[in-house]
């Protein structure tokens, strides 16, 4: 339930006046593309085009294109945009929508699974323990962090989302 409500709100936000005001000032100068490390190595990825599509309300086209996930969130575009458009932050919102409508890259499913299970993104193996001991590092105490995290995931609808992703 939460997921659908969330999605509606997000789409409303992106299509809404405040947001569109921010996007409409984009004059397609391409400064964001010039500094983008992903565009540098893959010419198909283009934040300027994402902004253009967004200003035309073509949200479906953006989220149906897997290239959206290529943004590595380095914020160079946000820093350089002469119109002060927070490009990277806008792309995150679009990813939030794409996640709910179409799902997420497999790497992120695994990361989320790990977080739901342990509250962290890496586990403590016996090899880790040994290495830490050799280096005179304090023992890592396993607390029940994951109980809190499970509650948060439940409250934000992310646990249901994860279940759906795992079943795919």
């Amino acid at each position: 339930m939460e997921i659908e409500k969330d999605l509606e709100k997000l789409i409303e936000e992106i299509g809404g006046e405040d947001f569109q005001k921010k996007v409409q000032v984009c004059y397609q100068c391409g400064t964001c593309v010039g500094g983008c490390p992903v565009a540098w190595v893959n010419e198909n990825f283009n934040p300027r085009k994402i902004m253009l599509a967004l200003s035309r309300g073509e949200i479906d086209e953006i989220i149906n294109n897997d290239l959206l996930w290529f943004c590595c969130y380095c914020h160079t575009c946000l820093e350089r945009c002469p119109q002060k458009i927070p490009v990277s932050e806008i792309i995150v919102k679009l990813k939030n929508i794409a996640a709910k409508v179409r799902g997420i890259p497999e790497g992120y499913v695994n990361e989320l699974k790990m977080i739901a299970k342990t509250g962290r993104i890496s586990s403590i193996s016996s090899a880790t323990e040994r290495r830490r001991e050799q280096l005179n590092l304090p023992k890592l105490v396993q607390t029940s962090v994951e109980k809190d995290i499970k509650r948060i995931l439940k409250q934000t609808g992310t646990n249901l989302f994860l279940e759906k992703e795992i079943k795919k």
Binding site: D6, W69, C72, Y73, V92, K93, K95, N96, A99, I104, G107, Y108, E111, L112, I115, I121, I152, L153, T156, G157, T158, F161
Partner: peptide
């Protein structure tokens, strides 16, 4: 993680 988890759900 500010990249993966934020991209999935900003609220989470």
């Amino acid at each position: 993680d500010p990249i993966g988890i934020k991209a999935i759900s900003e609220l989470t």
